[in-house]
Design a protein around this nucleic acid. Structure first.
Lengths: 344, 344
DNA sequence: CTGTTAGCGCCTTCAA
DNA sequence: TTGAAGGCGCTAACAG
């Protein structure tokens, strides 16, 4: 079964190529209703599917967007991706998912951007700071004039729209909660790369600690990466210190699981002896043992807003020109069983 | 900054379009080394990036493969995807990830296949039985002559290569382990859609139960879907029966987590009162509380084999013609803390 | 060893 | 309202 082209279709429907194209490509339909119907019927009958490569080559528009995440196995990114995928179904766009956690990656970020440039109409970048520097992104933006929206992250320069969470509020709510439970010796694990969101949380923590006169010790502030394994290692480190904290704020839920696991293996029970909380409220948070208290970012809302913004920039460039929205989502604190009253 | 085309490059390097193309498209290089170097240098200098749409249109080859999974948030699929992504870095191919768990999906499987056909060189299907019927896939295979490899699943007809795990052995090893711990009242949750791998596990379980004269009750055999939520519901159901099993074999690790969670909420402790084990040995299995005994499928190996097979079919169609490999991976049992001695 | 040329399938002016 | 023709960027015959 050879593939059906527009030429085949036009011949069969006894119209010219041009007419068929006009009808099927959805532009302003300048032809009689009868012809239109005949063409549509023939298309259905022949199972006509347009050749996207040809269309893209001709028009320069691919109806393809790239979604770049740090790591597709990172639970937060996965949830975003899933939401976006569902949401894209309602649009004519498709997405190419790219993650960049692979150490073996041979092409670097900039090269990848260039290769991508010709086959996408825009892109969403979820964190991924280690991989795509601000400079890379800004240069791409300037050179290619393709819309970009960042999620979680915000680039310096204010040129590129972003959707992110209010980390300050999230951190404060969580710390308030812990204080209410009687905790004072509260540890923090923060992302070692000190991305904007990481450093914001770190700063808020330090400020809060100062405001409430809580212990401010280096041993309570551990830089980590984003995986469970890293959380586990952080937990091990804490166990080695003389005096365990009574509560730990993990950089994310996965890290919290790792910490709880490390504690558990040494017989330190959560929340009876130490409380642990995370960020993101991923699906597993509810199902973990103990279920995890977490700052919920509402990834679904973030994902949708990011897509909305991007598609608006693609479809109506003039409207959204010079806008560079900075959308900030208010997080909420989800209380579960991993945090409890401090032991005296 | 306008995009650089081959024409620009050729002009700048003072060669013809064709020569530049020959050098850069990697085919047999029939030209002098000096010219070759000059072209390569110019390309680097100009930051030349080929236009994939044009290339695909011309050659019919896209260096793009589709990876279709049931649900990108399914941990097993995610691990596969991550491995494949890393592995693809070493090849000239890219992948388009498609998941199909979205209820809102407007295009159905067959339509999607058709749209895809023109922009991919082959595809890998990870399970996804609910979405893409065997018929759809076989029809696509016959019509488009594009290579397909299935993972986990095997299509009837033996036409399409597959990579899967030996479920029979896996199930037997797990049951042996439980029997050794003194369990006799062993429950099973099985995938409600009774995919080949699900039904194989189910059959093996039934057979084993008969062989060892274990209780064979409907209340011990629960159909489930693949998410944690489903496991949780199955756990609730078991709690409602008069007599709890002493061990549960979950359809997958996520389901096991759900079951453990449901039990925990009613004060039933794992493994002290009930043992629970899963399939897949996803990353979280080690970090869950209790850490989970699981049948390990070695997704990394499966993912690599699947890709190898697919790329071989694409690149060397004659070699692999009529092969239709059925690669079966032997699983191993990973013992952890969620299974223990049966209470008498 | 290198250049000329003819499309791949589609969209879009321009002309009828 | 419709048709004819040119070309998007690239590759692969075919000449030279």
């Amino acid at each position: 079964m050879a593939t059906i082209t527009l030429t085949d279709l036009a011949k069969k429907a006894r119209v010219s190529l041009a007419t068929a194209s006009r009808v099927l490509s959805g532009g302003p339909i300048r032809c009689s209703e009868r012809t239109r119907q005949r063409i549509l019927r023939t298309a259905r009958q022949l199972n006509y599917v347009p050749n996207f490569s040809a269309r893209t080559l001709r028009t320069g528009k691919s109806y393809n967007i790239a979604v770049i995440a740090y790591d597709i196995t990172d639970a937060f990114a996965v949830e975003c991706v899933r939401t976006m995928e569902a949401y894209l179904e309602e649009t004519p766009y498709r997405a190419t998912w790219i993650s960049c956690a692979n150490k073996t990656r041979s092409r670097d970020g900039r090269q990848m951007l260039q290769e991508l440039a010709l086959s996408i109409d825009g892109m969403i970048v979820i964190a991924a700071e280690n991989y795509l520097s601000d400079t890379d992104l800004l240069r791409f933006w300037a050179a290619e004039k393709k819309p970009i929206v960042t999620v979680i992250r915000r680039l310096r320069g204010d040129l590129i729209p972003s959707v992110r969470m209010n980390n300050d509020i999230g951190m404060r709510r969580l710390l308030d909660h812990l204080i209410e439970l009687g905790h004072r010796r509260i540890a923090l694990t923060y992302n070692r790369y000190m991305h904007p969101s990481a450093s914001q949380r770190y700063r808020t923590y330090r400020k809060y600690v100062a405001e409430h006169d809580l212990p401010d010790e280096k041993a309570l502030q551990l830089p980590v990466d984003i995986t469970m394994e890293d959380g586990y290692r952080a937990g091990e480190l804490m166990l080695k210190t003389k005096k365990l904290p009574t509560a730990v704020v993990a950089f994310n839920d996965l890290g919290a699981f790792g910490i709880i696991q490390a504690f558990g293996e040494e017989g330190v029970r959560v929340p009876q002896e130490v409380s642990v909380a995370g960020f993101d409220d991923i699906r597993m948070a509810r199902f973990y043992n103990p279920s995890l208290t977490s700052v919920a970012a509402d990834y679904e809302k973030m994902a949708k807003l990011a897509l909305d913004t991007l598609l608006a920039m693609i479809d109506r460039p003039d409207e959204s020109a010079g806008l560079a929205a900075d959308i900030i989502i208010q997080p909420k604190l989800v209380l579960r069983n991993s945090t409890g009253r401090a032991r005296v």
